[in-house]
Design a protein around this nucleic acid. Structure first.
Lengths: 246, 246
DNA sequence: TATCTTATATCTTGTATAAGACATAAGACA
DNA sequence: TGTCTTATGTCTTATACAAGATATAAGATA
């Protein structure tokens, strides 16, 4: 196929990686929706005119990156934030006591604004382009634990409103996925410790000035395009941010 | 080889995973030291009487878990904390400004004690067994950023002293590895925001009561055996804890 | 006849092996 | 000293077969 020898081209990449790129492109073009099954390895092999094992290695990598989910005997599926198992994929907060508590998102406000210099830089927009700002509370076991302020590019999330947010059940990312066709692939988080301001303190039921965990997150969709910037203040009185290193 | 059919045994595992287990065992037994090359895939295939591809798949998984490092054309090597590239593997702190700053560990104290209930539980020791406690400062660009209190099982780290700590260049884990033969494989971290106590505030040059990032870490060696419990207080005035989600 | 069970065919992904390509380093040789 | 060959690693691709899932048809049973 389009295989290029290293001698001829400095941008050589192995066959399976070229196939991966093609599958990624099809995914990006929405050829298969989240939750749906993609064609079988044999079918893809025929389509791209390579052997099944080569397709397999491409899919292997994409499964390791949480883009696809394999199910033996059933097929390979496009990963989805609607899957309940994906709920805690981007949420590292766990109760100090150990167990698992039900989480609930409570939207507070939703308004439109123009991108300032910081939002424009982070979201890769021009200065003054429309953005949407959402404030919401995250409750664990009926108690407020996180207050989030979320900045979204207005164009891709046109139609988002407080009502839409309130109607939706499940995670924000599942809403973004089903309603706006925006799939969050990966995110970068930066954590700091800060003192609670007045309003946050009231919302989280903690004294003003008490230490809070500040979590800034930039989320990316296909092609490393940033589509969300959020800042959360976590009350770590009864919960902590859990991370595994390896 | 020792392959068992699913019908005969409920604990069936594929061949490549059995090979992985054997390699892991050899690693644990110190057959090859950190930094050294393990035998080639072909050699291992002969030794275990399987094909090279099967060994490859086993090594693939171990490389993904940071236990081994592959180098095309050279060989496969036992991962080591002496490798300068591994310095930031367990340290997620980065300057807010962006760039990379040189880090330096400054040992403060090192004393012996007996395991209390918490240390005993976390380090899997009996109550009253000997432990070693280390206090140290971590400096970035000559400025104190982290103060750590580290709890170690006394038996495995017998001989550790302030002098030994001061002599050593490089990360703590590289010291543990070369001097005590203890390789840290993975770690769990729990982050919270707390107020600075008097002594920590002085050490970090911040006002007492100002918010600090508390990072509790339990590190594990082979066989998920816990061998370190540390609590760090991070000043996030000029740095932040960086984490990537996917 | 209606229904439940059990083969069976045929999809899927998972596992094992082999052969050749590519990368690297060391020694032969001009 | 510099270039070429060769040995020895890993990397890539291909092929064959095993195992899991599912729908359908055949058979047993009421």
């Amino acid at each position: 196929m389009m295989r290029q020898t290293p001698a001829e081209s400095p941008t050589f990449s192995p066959l399976y990686r070229q196939i991966k790129e093609l599958i990624l492109q099809a995914l990006e073009n929405g050829e298969w929706r989240p939750g749906e099954a993609i064609p079988s390895e044999t079918e893809l092999a025929q389509r791209f005119n390579v052997s099944q094992g080569t397709v397999r290695k491409a899919i292997d990598e994409m499964a390791a990156e949480n883009l696809l989910v394999r199910k033996q005997g059933k097929g390979t599926f496009v990963a989805s934030h609607n899957d309940p198992r994906a709920f805690f994929r981007f949420l590292r907060l766990v109760p100090l006591s150990g167990g698992i508590e039900p989480a609930k998102s409570v939207p507070l406000e939703c308004w439109r604004a123009k991108a300032g210099p910081e939002a424009a830089r982070i979201l890769n927009l021009k200065l003054g382009e429309p953005i949407i700002i959402v404030r919401r509370l995250l409750e664990f076991a009926e108690k407020p634990v996180v207050v989030d302020e979320i900045y979204l590019p207005g164009e891709t999330f046109a139609g988002l409103s407080l009502e839409v947010l309130k109607e939706h059940q499940g995670s924000l990312y599942s809403l973004f996925e089903t309603r706006f066709g925006v799939r969050m692939i990966r995110a970068e988080e930066r954590l700091r410790a800060v003192a609670a301001d007045r309003t946050s303190a009231e919302l989280l039921h903690v004294p003003e000035g008490s230490p809070l965990l500040s979590v800034e997150r930039v989320s990316f969709t296909y092609g490393d395009r940033p589509v969300e910037w959020r800042r959360g203040l976590y009350s770590t009185a009864a919960h902590c941010y859990y991370n595994e290193l390896s």
